[in-house]
Amino acid sequence: MARSTPEIPNASMADIAFLLLTFFLVTTTIPNNKGLSIALPPPPEANPPEDVKIQERNMFKIQINSSDALLIEGEPREDIRTLKDEIKAFILNNGKDPSSSDNPEKAIVSFKTDRGTSHKRFIELLDIVQAAYYDIYAEQAGVSNAEFRAAASDLSIPSNKAIYEKGRAGIPLNISIADPTKVGN
């Protein structure tokens, strides 16, 4: 006996799915939780300015003016491709070169910008300095740079924490970002 099988029309299914898809495309965003992470110093009032003498040799000075031009250690500079290696050499000097740092704990990379410096330029330089530090950490921990950063992002996992602590041992992330000067605005 032939029985008519009930059928649901599904020709419009694709249309409905497209409609839903378009709705989600329009109302959602792809989350971006990535960026350059830094820790700010304690509030200005908490520790009154005392003259801490930092030896000239332990400072790697990076200055950026309001037209985004650079002074590295007092010298004007255009090409910044070799900068990362210079910073690495500076941090890991350990007293060999008398004009460079005593040891990684004392070495400080100092940033000074102007109020008119663009954010893009600042990020570009900060990226290079952080690249130098992360390269050193990764090498000390025996992993690649990307692996070290991934481990540092989630310290709740014990193996990540071990990598992080091994890499950071004896080398603090000494990046100092000074208050900007007020030449251009």
């Binding site: 990535k34 992360y134 709740s156």
Partner: peptide, 12 residues
Amino acid sequence: PKATQLRKLMRK
């Protein structure tokens, strides 16, 4: 801006 040395935030 773009950068290379990114860190990811885990706890949103």
